[in-house]
Design a protein around this nucleic acid. Structure first.
Lengths: 184, 184
DNA sequence: ACCTGAACACCGTTCAAGT
DNA sequence: ACCTGAACACCGTTCAAGT
């Protein structure tokens, strides 16, 4: 008598993502994952290749969510400047809401394996906007904006801006200056 | 008869740093470290609290090196713009030469424990230069420059700039625009 | 005083045996 | 067809016993 499948693929990803958000990647063990799913560790290997596979799925789930959020605001503004501003805010909001997943997406050790790479998925939408505007040197502009954005968010998440002032204001202020520097 | 001390503290840090540079942090195990030192794992606990302690020491060693390199170029230029430019190049060069250590220094999970914090140690020298110049809003300016710089270097190290063009030129170009945006 | 073997609690992963 | 217990090779870490 065949044993019934007790756990669906999506449930695994959901549970794994929850562990990452709550406790960090290093706590995402096969044991912890099996426990929250009410199953024994070896059973997971029927659905997953190994632990790296789990982490990859969590990262891809995060990328999909971030990409979706970026798409949602893409048409919100009519001018390039407004669109870029909205997109930057979306990335920052995602990082502050999901620091564990954000770190995972941009971790070079993982992002190399992601289907739709984390880092490229951050550069690409910005590049698209700049290209749509017929902006000269779109690639280097996109890189400058995304480098600043990723640097700001990861430093903020890491707590590097502990000292002084509103980080909200610092973000908006620097974003203004970056957009001016881009000359969009 | 007391057994002679077979391994010095500095040798441990040196060996650990070498493992990180060559194989990455995850390969820095107590076993691997003991092996390269010609000693058994339990012996390490006479000199170190635990594995986190080893990692902390490696990170601090890297921070000291980076700080030293920053100090060395600080007086190389007479104007603020030249100093900031040199410092940015030094950080980038360090990241490209020591990607494993760079990632460690800026990893929020480790930098929180470092004596002289990695992220702050990157912001501070820039902040000093801007303050020396009597630059208004030095803090937010320092943050903008360091955010862009850290973002650029970590994305470059992660291989996010695979597609197209010289990254050297992209770096210099963006650095120019950032300095203009800062209006130093 | 320092070093070590043995031991413990954890991992990830495999596999034969159960249903 | 899926699940599980047992087992293996790895970790980090502790500690009593050696010199």
């Amino acid at each position: 008598m065949p044993a019934p499948q007790r756990v669906k693929h999506d449930e695994i990803v959901f549970a794994a993502r929850a562990i990452v958000e709550r406790d960090g990647v290093e706590q995402l063990t096969m044991r912890a994952l099996a426990d929250t799913l009410g199953v024994k560790p070896p059973s997971l290997y029927k659905r997953l290749r190994d632990r790296r596979d789990v982490i990859r799925l969590v990262a891809e789930d995060g990328v999909a969510q971030l990409t979706g959020a970026l798409d949602a605001v893409r048409s919100a503004s009519h001018d390039a400047q407004g669109r870029l501003r909205s997109m930057a805010r979306v990335v920052r909001a995602f990082g502050l809401e999901h620091p564990g997943t954000y770190a995972l997406i941009f971790d070079p050790r993982i992002s190399g394996e992601i289907e739709q790479e984390g880092l490229r998925s951050a550069v690409q939408p910005v590049l698209n906007v700049l290209q749509d505007e017929g902006f000269d040197d779109s690639l280097s502009g996109a890189r400058m904006l995304t480098a600043w954005l990723h640097g700001f968010v990861s430093m903020e998440v890491a707590g590097a801006f502990r000292l002084g002032g509103s980080t909200d204001a610092a973000f908006e202020d620097a974003l203004d200056r970056i957009l001016v520097a881009l000359d969009v």
